[in-house]
């Protein structure tokens, strides 16, 4: 089945719009299609041109959407939608997902552990990569070497805020990265360690590993490797996987009788 056929089916079932891709001037751009525009929908998802679909859905909802929409979503897009739904940022029930499985090539490039959504409408399933070589490579460094590696990376930060801006699960109205008490204004590169660690901590319980942050970094900082490690730690400590399903509660939302830090730092 193609995305267009699936969209046609969704319109017949009564959705009001479908968020998919449109080819124009040689590029693929995200667009919310109405029923009459269905023939303009790209049949496939552009392989190497990924956009923060879930973030777009959130902004459409914020603008006062009063209807149901279909969304073309890869595995990571669906995880982001689930995470946003759990955190009350979007109404997940108003969405119909057109599931797209990523190619093996894409999955290997992303080192993605689940490069497919819960239901696949387009494409065929590739099982995914369970161990990230990039994380292991950084882990294999000695402590001093590893610190020097990250400091060198963060020294090239332009503070463009692209990693935050493109992130589909970053939605705070007041961002701690813009808090003058935490991050000094007017200095580039931003203060170490506060800037990058603030973001890493924020990502630890919500990063759905789409990798858009790293792709949009003009300095090529390996943010994805950092956040993969952060989510790995959260998985170990709290058995929590961001965006895995609607029922799992975020560890940041459940401090109390449902969660304990090792060593009993928190008691019920």
């Amino acid at each position: 089945m193609s995305i267009r056929e699936k969209a046609r089916q969704l319109f017949a079932e009564g959705v009001d719009g479908v968020l998919a891709f449109k080819r124009t001037d040689g590029v693929c751009i995200p667009h919310l299609f109405t029923k009459t525009e269905v023939e303009e929908i790209c049949k496939d998802v552009p392989a190497d041109q990924r956009y923060p679909v879930a973030g777009i859905v959130r902004r459409i909802f914020l603008s006062g959407l009063a209807g149901k929409i279909g969304v073309v979503a890869r595995g990571c897009d669906e995880r982001a939608l689930i995470e946003l739904g759990k955190q009350g940022q979007i109404d997940f029930d108003l969405l119909s997902i057109i599931g797209v499985a990523c190619s093996e090539e894409q999955a290997r490039y992303c080192e993605c552990s689940k490069p497919y959504p819960s239901r696949i409408d387009v494409g065929s399933r590739f099982e995914g990569i369970s161990v990230s070589e990039k994380v292991r490579a950084v882990e294999s460094m000695e402590g001093d070497e590893r610190l020097a590696y990250w400091l060198a990376q963060f020294a090239s930060c332009l503070k463009c805020m692209g990693c935050r801006n493109i992130c589909p699960v970053c939605y705070c109205v007041e961002c701690s990265l813009e808090d003058e008490n935490l991050v000094r204004r007017g200095s580039v590169p931003p203060d170490w360690p506060v800037f990058h660690l603030l973001r890493a901590v924020d990502m630890a319980s919500r990063c759905i590993d789409c990798g858009l942050c790293e792709e949009s970094c003009p300095s090529g900082i390996p943010l994805r490797t950092l956040y993969k490690k952060a989510t790995e730690i959260v998985k170990e400590l709290f058995d929590y996987e961001p965006g895995a399903d609607m029922t799992q509660r975020s560890p940041l939302g459940t401090i109390g009788d449902q969660s304990e830090l090792p060593g009993g730092a928190f008691e019920a």
Binding site: D25, T34, I60, G67
Partner: peptide, 15 residues
């Protein structure tokens, strides 16, 4: 809901 009642729209313009 018909297109006319669609009180929202989202698109992107390459520039």
């Amino acid at each position: 809901m018909s297109d006319k009642n669609l009180d929202f729209s989202y698109t992107t313009v390459p520039t």
